[in-house]
């Protein structure tokens, strides 16, 4: 990891423009692509930890996620089979009636950086599409994000459809977004609720046994 010391420093001091050239320099020096993934994930953990304690805020989390994405794209073609493993599979989207995507997108970046395979259905997603995707991918986690109360009913509808199709026992459901509450999650029968993308990540990691 000595090779990656400078990369790590640049990443953790958010020197966005310097990270890409350093990746190239490290690869030219022969650093294994797999080592980048491990280093990036460690950096994300550190940023996430500081976000958790209130030292960092959303921009740090978003910028770290963007740097992670950038590094991943650079090294993806160089990875060998078996270099990366999925932590879990999740289906994500904003339910019908709501087109907000901000929180969902931040959560997606964090989940991918944490090793999850994410199937993002986008916004204004009909209830049946969530359920079909869960069925088709065998995802064990379903995340729905909303910023307006118009999404309450469609979220409930997704839970009802999962029940109807006999899938409810196989998938953990988390709802997120500024308008959601724990009480609301209980009302519709979701397993968890959050208003914070990083907390959401910690919750889904507990679902897969990869978190605290």
């Amino acid at each position: 990891m000595e090779d990656l010391k400078k990369f790590r420093e640049l990443f953790l001091s958010f020197q966005i423009d310097a990270v890409g050239p350093e990746v190239k320099a490290c690869l030219d020096r022969g650093t294994a692509p797999k080592a980048f993934l491990a280093c990036c994930q460690e950096c994300m953990e550190e940023v996430g930890g500081k976000f958790d304690t209130g030292e960092y805020y959303l921009p740090e989390l978003v910028v770290a996620g963007e740097m992670f994405k950038d590094v991943s794209e650079r090294i993806k073609p160089l990875l060998k089979t078996g270099d990366s493993t999925s932590t879990g599979t999740l289906v994500l989207g904003t339910p019908q009636g709501d087109i907000h995507h901000l929180g969902k997108d931040i959560f997606k970046v964090l989940a991918e950086a944490s090793g999850f395979t994410v199937h993002d259905l986008g916004v204004d997603v009909p209830a049946a599409s969530f359920v079909d995707k869960v069925e088709a991918t065998g995802a064990t986690i379903l995340g729905m994000s909303a910023l307006i109360t118009a999404a309450f009913e469609p979220m409930g509808e997704v839970l009802r459809l999962l029940d109807e199709k006999g899938l409810r026992q196989m998938v953990r459901v988390i709802i997120g977004g500024g308008v959601t509450t724990r009480e609301m999650a209980d009302r519709i029968g979701a397993d968890a609720q959050t208003r914070d993308a990083y907390e959401g990540l910690k919750i889904v990691r507990t679902f897969t046994g990869t978190g605290e």
């Binding site: 423009d17 978003v62 910028v63 963007e66 997108d105």
Partner: peptide, 11 residues
């Protein structure tokens, strides 16, 4: 938008 603006906050 959120991602470019977050980058602006640092850049």
């Amino acid at each position: 938008t959120i991602v470019p603006f977050s980058l602006d906050l640092f850049q």
